[in-house]
Design a protein around this nucleic acid. Structure first.
Length: 886
RNA sequence: GGAGGCGUAGCCCAGCUGGUCAGAGCGCUUGCUUGACAUGCAAGAGGUCGUUGGUUCAAGUCCAAUCGUCUCCACCA
């Protein structure tokens, strides 16, 4: 065992020990979870950061929450597993690698699929470790031996297994649909990867002439270039203006193609001209209208949103060039009626901000209807709880209106879809199989014997993240880990991925494992900048957690991130807050240093126990510590991490440091039995404080802990204290409150009179005889903390002449100040004080005189009011007496 | 168009199921080299809890309306 060191460095310098401590933890294996343990499990799976990502404040907040819960549960006797890992983030990683290759003058296409994947794996291996190491700097107690990656063998196996099952059950299907297409990323993206923004645009009103030359119909569009693919014009069947035209045909301008006028309920009579051009290949609603009326789908753009050969003379123009050219040509042809300014929502790729092109293409989808039902039920019936609860609303409304999920992406980095197509166009056989691609391709088409080719696409990243809660534990195998740690308990995440991730994990888990993936979802808010804006690259207002850790320490950062913050609420970043947290750490450091320095050399802190004989102040601090344990535990149980942190800070600073340490100083100075007793309590409570604070600020608590020899080698594996009724000294702690009040009252009075601490004054304390021994035994406190030269007890002071008086509920304390007391000022002060007490009395009297209150309020409430009145009246009496004596 | 959050001391925010909740931190004022800490100690000033109604014996705390602000969802061409 390590020597009892006593010598914490004079300056709190987290840099000196944080790294060392983390290494020790890792080496000692405390982070490791044991699947064979008999303890109840507590599991959190990390929201896997992007493999190429770097730690930002959001990660810091999210992981601080998780680590607090994990460390608390670990100390509370659970077999805890915090499972870490990273996400392959297909679209984001692929974009980064493409960009990096571009700098080297290499194109993805030239490199080929295999070459590109090789490069991307290299990239992943090179940069993938970065965020993991950064999480370690934060103090995250993850089980690193269980670290997973969404594209590792196990997770990939789970993805395949799930897809095969979905396909077999008819819940995964392939079809021609309108998807959100990003012409920059050259892939489809899902609805929730598309961000809408209001933009100023135009509303072009165009003439579509009738085939029979009998005039024209006026349509309006915001995207004239799509008219190249128009295959109809639709009107509302009830629209009197157009009813008679239904069935007539039009000549599509510029393309000179004949298209029909169809009737469809979808058309809003009130909007625009009431006649809508229908472009089934480039608009989701038009696509549906097209389906209903059997209209052809003419795709006029390629994957880069450039007009293709179906666009006639506009072939090879970009969509915006084409728009310009088309408008010009229409104008010249006299077909442009007018152009209105129009503000509308334009969808953009959430990844690269390129305007989305709704585009008809063949994609894979997951049928959501059946999957959503149990996922809705699980949240509705409370099997899964959201904290705060309000986020259940958005979850439910999304789930209840869910649309099929497009899961195929035209990317290479990701899980390749295990679907194979016969190359013979007459056969067109589709095979979905878990066999190795080599074997499948070797085997040829089972129907016609022709060659097969594998689907070029990969799955949406979220398709694999959706399985994270169980694929990481070994599913589909019935592994020890899966049996022990699944379902997990708490998911800690940000509200912006409720749909992307949380919802999909819930329905996936229920569908494939039959279990909920977790029972509680705790949401953390967003860390904003000091002006309340989101931290973003474009604003360059991000704060780097690593720089903050370097400057203030990980503990200060962690403590700042949880302090004064409620679950799900956003918070503002400010340098002042972090210095406040650092100062708190410094305060604890110095308090510990003081306690340790003052222990005798032969003190055995590892055996520090509560002494048999306790002073009143000892009982007082023990009672308050005991209450702290109860409060903090309760607040952690209800996920009120910010409140818990506040409880602890208040106790350490305002109770332990400001009072208890000061109260014990005279005893330490005195030495002997009473000093030893005080030292034991000081150490006992210090150790308790360290333990309860440890989940929040793991490094400093471990460093101080290790300076005190303990039976537990690391505070990480020490036991979380439980509320103990034996430590609840109700009477004594209440009594001691009277001493605290009296000391404070004297200090206040002295401050009002500007008496320097160096001027000691003899105190005369007037109180009832029952309190005499309480106050007499506290003489040393008055001497030290209230600058008393002596203390005398008296039942009734006759003359207050030349004396200042401090009044509490239980006592009047007289201080002979001679000329310092200005009678007039003193009178004014006392009158002010009396007025304050009197307003309390009036308030309570009013309450007690209210018949309804007496009758309807709970008895305890009435009792409380009476007690309050009693106290206030006593105090008022004391102040009045003092006034009279002036 | 729909849903939700926020609006409490100069600033940043806590206030869980209505009754010691009117609070913390920062800032401010005054006084302190009180041998752990000036990254500190002591004391103090500051708010009729956005506004207006309602429910209740009792409302920052529940309900309604309203103003301001932010976010999410939908996306009518």
């Amino acid at each position: 065992m390590k020597e009892f060191s006593k010598n914490l460095s004079k300056i709190y310098s987290p840099k000196d020990f944080e790294e060392r401590i983390y290494k020790n933890w890792e080496e000692s294996g405390y982070f490791r979870a044991n699947a064979n343990s008999g303890k109840p499990p507590y599991t959190i799976v990390i929201p896997p950061p992007n493999v190429t990502g770097i730690l930002h404040m959001g990660h810091a907040l999210n992981n601080t929450y998780q680590d607090i819960l994990i460390r608390w549960k670990r100390m509370s006797g659970y077999e805890t597993l915090w499972l870490p890992g990273t996400d392959h983030a297909s679209i984001s990683t692929e974009a980064r690698v493409v960009a990096a290759l571009k700098n080297e003058g290499i194109s993805k296409k030239n490199l080929g699929r295999d070459g590109f994947l090789e490069k991307t794996w290299e990239w992943t291996r090179e940069y993938g470790g970065a965020i993991i190491n950064q999480l370690k700097k934060l103090g995250s107690s993850c089980d690193w031996e269980r670290e997973r990656f969404t594209m590792d063998e196990g997770c990939s196996g789970a993805v395949q297994k799930v897809f095969l099952k979905l396909f077999a059950d008819g819940k995964a299907y392939r079809g021609l649909r309108i998807v959100n297409w990003c012409p920059e990323c050259k892939t489809s993206i899902s609805d929730i990867e598309c961000d809408y923004e209001e933009k100023a645009g135009h509303f072009w009103h165009i003439k579509y002439p009738f085939s029979d030359n009998s005039g024209f119909i006026e349509i309006a569009t915001t995207r004239p270039e799509t008219m190249l693919g128009d295959t109809a014009v639709a009107v509302n069947p009830d629209d009197q203006r157009y009813k008679h035209l239904i069935g007539k045909t039009l000549i599509l301008p510029l393309m000179e193609r004949e298209i029909p006028i169809v009737a469809d309920e979808y058309v809003d009579k009130e909007f625009g001209t009431g006649a809508v051009k229908i472009t089934p290949a480039h608009d989701p609603n038009d696509f549906e209208v097209g389906q209903r009326h059997g209209l052809p789908v003419i795709n006029v753009m390629d994957e880069t949103a450039t007009i293709n050969q179906n666009g006639g003379k506009y072939n090879c123009l970009s969509r915006y060039e084409a728009r310009k050219a088309i408008v010009k040509d229409l104008e010249e042809a006299g077909l442009l009626i007018k152009v209105d300014e129009h503000i509308h929502n334009v969808g953009a790729c959430s990844r690269c901000d390129t305007v989305i092109e709704p585009w008809a293409s063949v994609q894979w989808f997951v049928k959501m209807g059946e999957l959503a039902k149990p996922a809705i039920e699980a949240v509705k019936n409370g099997r899964i709880k959201f904290i705060p609860k309000r986020f259940e609303n958005s979850y439910l409304s999304w789930m209840e209106n869910i649309r099929d999920w497009c899961i195929s992406r035209q990317l290479w980095w990701g899980h390749r879809i295990p679907a194979y197509y016969c190359i013979n166009p007459d056969c067109n056989h589709l095979e979905v199989t878990g066999e190795s691609p080599e074997a499948v391709l070797e085997a040829k088409c089972v129907k016609c014997g022709d060659n097969l080719k594998q689907d070029e696409d990969t799955f949406d990243t979220w398709f694999s993240s959706a399985l994270w809660a169980f694929s990481t534990l070994g599913w589909p195998e019935e592994t020890e880990d899966f049996k022990k740690f699944f379902p997990t308990q708490t998911l800690v995440t940000a509200p912006d991925i409720i749909f992307h991730w949380v919802a999909r994990m819930i329905f996936s888990s229920l569908e494939y494992t039959g279990e909920i993936p977790f029972d509680t979802v705790l949401f953390n808010g967003i860390v904003r900048d000091n002006q309340g804006r989101k931290m973003s690259k474009s604003l360059d207002n991000g704060v780097d957690p690593l720089e903050i850790i370097d400057k203030y320490g990980a503990d200060a950062l962690r403590f700042m991130l949880v302090s004064g913050n409620a679950p799900g609420n956003d918070m503002r970043w400010s340098e002042e807050k972090i210095t406040a947290s650092r100062n708190f750490a410094n305060k604890l450091w110095n308090a510990a240093r003081y306690v340790l320095i003052n222990l005798p050399d032969d003190f055995k802190p590892e055996k520090s126990e509560i002494p048999k004989v306790l002073n009143i102040e000892d009982k007082w601090i023990l009672t308050l510590y005991n209450k702290l344990v109860k409060d903090v535990t309760h607040n952690l149980e209800t996920f009120e991490l910010g409140v818990a942190a506040g409880n602890i800070q208040d106790f350490i600073w305002n109770i332990y440091c400001d009072w208890y340490i000061e109260l014990t100083k005279p005893r330490i100075a005195e030495g002997g039995e009473t000093a030893l007793a005080a030292q034991n309590i000081l150490v006992y409570v210090l150790k308790g404080m360290l333990k309860i604070l440890h989940p929040f600020t793991p490094f400093i608590t471990e460093e101080i802990w290790s300076a005190i020899p303990n039976s537990d080698k690391s505070i990480m594996i020490s036991n979380w204290d439980k509320y103990d009724e034996k430590l609840n000294f109700k009477q004594e702690s209440q009594d001691f409150g009277k001493i605290i009040d009296a000391v404070s009252a004297v200090r206040t009075k002295r401050a009002e009179l500007n008496v320097p601490p160096s001027k000691k004054v003899a105190l005369e304390i007037e109180t009832v005889r029952e309190n005499f021994s309480l106050f007499e035994n506290s003489t040393a406190f008055f001497e030290r903390l209230a600058f008393a030269s002596s203390v005398s007890l008296i039942e009734k002071v006759d003359s207050a002449e030349g004396k200042a008086v401090a009044v509490t509920d239980t006592a009047r304390i007289f201080m002979p100040m001679g000329e310092l007391v200005d009678t007039e000022k003193e009178r004014a002060r006392l009158e002010k004080e009396l007025a304050a007490v009197q307003s309390d009395i009036d308030f309570v009297m009013k309450q007690l005189n209210n018949k309804n209150f007496i009758e309807k309020a709970p008895a305890a409430q009435v009792e409380k009011a009476k007690e309050k009145l009693h106290k206030a009246e006593e105090k008022a009496g004391k102040i009045k007496a003092s006034l009279e004596a002036l």
